[in-house]
């Protein structure tokens, strides 16, 4: 494990990753890398393999071939230390997945206490800190169902942050939200980016991707079809990306 990898060493790297579900080839030689502090946006049509690629990074899916290295962990190997990997990686899903029977504070303190053996009082301080970071300080003792969708998603982000991950993965975290609640979540992610968090995010918010992504990976039929800086969204070179950003996806 390389705790202090040189800054040139990517935090996340995928090399020629293959993944099939039965006969369906979902990832067909996907390669990309994310440097420390970089924000990478995964975009593409529904079914192009974005979620699968993201889930492979945290080993929610096992790859069939290729190489994935995340914070020094060889994720493609069967002997990868899953719990060590997942302490380095935070993941936030479209459907929040807060634990309904626990208060927001308990949702946040659970993993630091159970996994890292943090003292309860210290974990509670941490909960306060990360909740302030997502603007939810006053919801400490609420239960998830007492929160709006946008607040639940921000709490889920705070829960991930409390594990102090080296990289955060976001899978369409605003897709389940009304437009007026989307903004409050995007603002939190924007702030994280400004604070230097390394992030990989699957998103349909093209305006947002254009604003904060250092790099865009456009996926099409299980392949990285086009990649480059955010400017490729305004001047795409492939007809597929041209069509994708042209179909009303690019709005700010």
């Amino acid at each position: 494990m390389q705790q202090n990898a040189p800054s040139s060493e990517p935090i996340v790297s995928l090399h020629n990753v293959q993944k099939s579900f039965g006969a369906l080839r979902v990832l067909d030689g996907v390669s990309f890398a994310v440097a420390r502090g970089e924000v990478l946006a995964l975009i593409g049509r529904s079914g192009s393999g974005k979620s699968t690629a993201l889930r492979c990074i945290d080993r929610f899916e096992k790859v069939d071939g290729g190489q994935i290295v995340v914070c020094g962990h060889r994720v493609d190997r069967p002997d990868v230390n899953l719990r060590a990997l997942r302490q380095d990686v935070g993941i936030v899903f479209q459907s929040y997945n807060l634990f309904p029977h626990l208060t927001i504070e308990q949702n946040i303190t659970l993993a630091p206490c159970a996994v890292k053996g943090m003292a309860t009082s210290q974990a509670k301080d941490l909960a306060r800190k990360v909740l302030a970071q997502v603007g939810l300080d006053e919801k400490l003792h609420a239960y998830p169902e007492q929160l709006s969708g946008g607040q639940q998603q921000r709490a889920a982000i705070a829960r991930s942050l409390a594990m102090q991950p080296k990289v955060m993965l976001f899978d369409e975290v605003t897709s389940a939200l009304d437009p007026e609640l989307t903004g409050e979540v995007l603002k939190v992610i924007e702030q994280l980016a400004a604070d230097g968090m390394t992030m990989v995010m699957v998103t349909h918010e093209m305006g947002f991707a254009k604003g904060i992504a250092d790099r865009i990976v456009f996926m099409h039929r299980g392949k990285v079809h086009e990649t480059g800086p955010a400017s490729i969204l305004t001047s795409p070179t492939t007809p597929e990306l041209t069509q994708f950003v042209g179909t009303g996806n690019l709005k700010s």
């Binding site: 899953l82 997942r86 935070g90 997945n97 807060l98 634990f99 993993a111």
Partner: peptide, 12 residues
């Protein structure tokens, strides 16, 4: 999703 969220937090 509950279980995946917990796995993602490195719980055993």
């Amino acid at each position: 999703g509950q279980i995946e969220a917990a796995e993602g937090l490195a719980l055993s």
